[in-house]
């Protein structure tokens, strides 16, 4: 019915239907990216916290003021200590994470490709993954000493298991039709693994990296329990022992910034490697 026709009927008087827009019932349930909100909320919370500390509503024993935390952080930077701590921690993180990831990739791939390896690895991983690595620290001291080895080993063990799980899960999820296609074209086993299985498992492997990187950072504090002079984890432990809560929170904030940086890097890597998605 055209507008004119409707208007005519309206003009004709009689039983003119009331024209009104159809009520809108959609909307919502569609998250939009709103970058600023997170930042604003963070700043508001920080402001409230500072205000609470200034007025004495939050005692210094309960929580140090953000300015005190910032001052502790500034001290770290000014004294140059932060670079010693960061350098030591990053070295342990990188070595442990790369080692754990590399071993995890190999074992996970074996578990994904060979029934024999899977039968052996999967129950073993299920049994060993949940063990808190901290509980093994005294053993690690005996096995790896109190030098860098035991610290790297703690992180390595922590990242190894989630990587294994991510990799063989990823291999399992590779479209079987693609593998059958490869076989039907007479591709060699190695080619199928390299060109079909690995790239197909890459999304799962990369999200596994996110988890293992987070675990590596979590384990940093545990790793640096043993004979560490420098390191963010050692700094946090010492601050806790000295009840220096401002330093404690500054250290935790550094860890969380480290987490953000790693997450950003992995996001970049995902965008680069998975641009075909």
């Amino acid at each position: 019915m055209s507008d004119e026709a409707l208007a005519e009927r309206g003009a004709a008087g009689a039983a003119a239907p009331v024209a009104r827009p159809v009520p809108f019932r959609g909307g919502g349930f569609a998250p939009r990216p709103m970058r600023l909100v997170g930042l604003v909320l963070f700043l508001v919370l920080l402001g409230l916290w500072e205000l609470g500390s200034r007025t004495g509503w939050i005692g210094p024993l309960v929580l140090p003021a953000p300015t005190a935390v910032f001052e502790a952080f500034r001290q770290l930077v000014v004294s140059g200590q932060i670079w010693l701590h960061l350098g030591a921690s990053l070295q342990r993180l990188l070595l442990g994470w790369f080692g754990g990831t590399l071993l995890g990739l190999l074992v996970g791939l074996a578990a994904g490709l060979f029934s024999m390896a899977r039968a052996g690895v999967v129950p073993l991983v299920a049994a060993l993954f949940p063990i808190p690595k901290i509980a093994l620290l005294p053993l690690f001291i005996i096995w790896f000493g109190i030098g860098e080895e035991s610290k790297v080993a703690t992180i390595l063990f922590g990242t190894f298991f989630p990587t294994v799980i991510a990799v063989y899960g990823g291999v399992d999820n590779v479209d079987r039709n693609l593998i059958r296609m490869g076989q039907s074209f007479g591709l060699s086993w190695l080619s199928i693994v390299r060109k079909i299985v690995l790239p197909g498992a890459l999304p799962a492997i990369l999200s596994g990296f996110r988890i293992s990187a987070a675990i590596a950072i979590i384990l940093l504090v545990a790793a640096e329990m043993i004979g560490a002079e420098y390191g963010i984890g050692a700094y946090i432990l010492l601050a806790g022992n000295l009840m220096a809560t401002d330093q404690l929170i500054a250290g935790v904030a550094i860890l969380s910034m480290l987490g953000l940086a790693v997450s950003w890097l992995l996001g970049r890597a995902e965008r680069y490697f998975l641009r075909w998605r």
Binding site: D175, N177, M181, F185, G186, W276
Partner: peptide, 17 residues
Amino acid sequence: LNPLTYVFQDFALLPWR
């Protein structure tokens, strides 16, 4: 090179290539 060669219903293309 491959005497018996398939064409699949679901195309079976590698999405990353």
